[in-house]
């Protein structure tokens, strides 16, 4: 059940060029949040913006919601400049969550940019399960777009050891774009049982092609402009081969997603 509440900014940390980690203390312990869920934030007054903005939950710890946001406009920029203790109005949990079947022991999770957020949450829950042999890829354009693990992993619980990095120019981690690194992994290892991915549409499109060719079950977490975040406005439509009861060719990212099976969406 979603609710609107005023949280308090407990931690704010710049973790890379234009990437900010936020930890917002909420009422209760956040046990109703699952990986894939998102929240919407009322824009800080300093942003002079009006509509709530959606952000994937990157983790829940100490009764707080963790977020990783990229400064791309007035709202994200003003969020990134907030100070500890600031009150933030949030609405959540919103959207569906990753429903990974129990027989999936080897899951590869591929995040492009801030698309990593929901994957970090999923990974931190699965990392406690000793039978899982998961891998995470966090891809960015250059070194500056990714956080330094040495600096942040010891401090931030969501950064687990199984996270690998890749950059387009090779300035950090493996060299190559996310789909290229996926192909390299597939050459070296047996196919994973499944893939989850979130990031730029083009990246996911290529990953879908690779996964479909090898019949690897895949889930995507989608992003789209949205106004209500609750399924009311139909503003966040994503093309689908069969749609839903109300639409034969679109699904709503906010309420029917954001997590979709690969076959449900046209990327």
């Amino acid at each position: 059940m979603k609710k609107i509440e005023t949280g308090k900014l407990a931690v704010i940390k710049n973790i890379a060029n234009s990437l900010t980690y936020l930890k917002i203390k909420i009422e209760g312990n956040g046990e109703n949040y699952a990986p894939g869920n998102f929240i919407t934030i009322l824009p800080p007054a300093s942003s002079a913006r009006f509509l709530r903005r959606p952000f994937s939950v990157a983790g829940i710890s100490d009764g707080s919601i963790e977020l990783i946001i990229k400064s791309i406009g007035p709202v994200t920029e003003s969020l990134a400049s907030l100070t500890q203790g600031t009150e933030i109005e949030i609405m959540g949990p919103l959207g569906n969550s990753y429903q990974i079947p129990e027989n999936i022991k080897k899951l590869w999770m591929i995040g492009g940019g801030t698309g990593i957020a929901s994957i970090l949450f999923l990974n931190s829950l699965r990392s406690g399960n000793s039978v899982c042999i998961d891998k995470v890829l966090w891809a960015g354009k250059t070194k500056g777009a990714l956080p330094s693990m040495e600096l942040f992993a010891p401090q931030l619980e969501i950064f687990k050891k199984n996270i690998a990095f890749a950059t387009d120019d090779g300035s950090a981690g493996e060299k190559g774009r996310a789909p290229e690194v996926l192909l390299q992994w597939l050459e070296k290892e047996h196919n994973p049982d499944a893939i989850v991915s979130c990031g730029p549409r083009e990246m996911m499109k290529e990953i879908k092609k690779i996964a479909d060719k090898r019949a690897i079950p895949t889930w995507f977490s989608m992003e789209e402009f949205m106004a209500c975040g609750s399924g009311a406005c139909a503003g966040c439509a994503v093309p689908s081969p069969y749609g839903s009861m109300c639409s034969s060719s679109y699904l709503k990212v906010c309420s029917e997603g954001p997590v979709f099976k690969s076959s449900e969406v046209i990327l």
Binding site: F50, L51, E224, F225, A227, A234, C236, A237, Y250
Partner: peptide
């Protein structure tokens, strides 16, 4: 039933928002 318009369907503007949902709805029967 109407599927509605091609996305993106909404965005914020200064002091407002633009939408072109295109009357997406389930139709009178449903």
């Amino acid at each position: 039933q109407r599927d509605g318009n091609k996305p993106p369907r909404c965005c914020e503007t200064d002091s407002g928002m633009l939408n072109s949902i295109g009357l997406a709805n389930c139709g009178i029967e449903q």
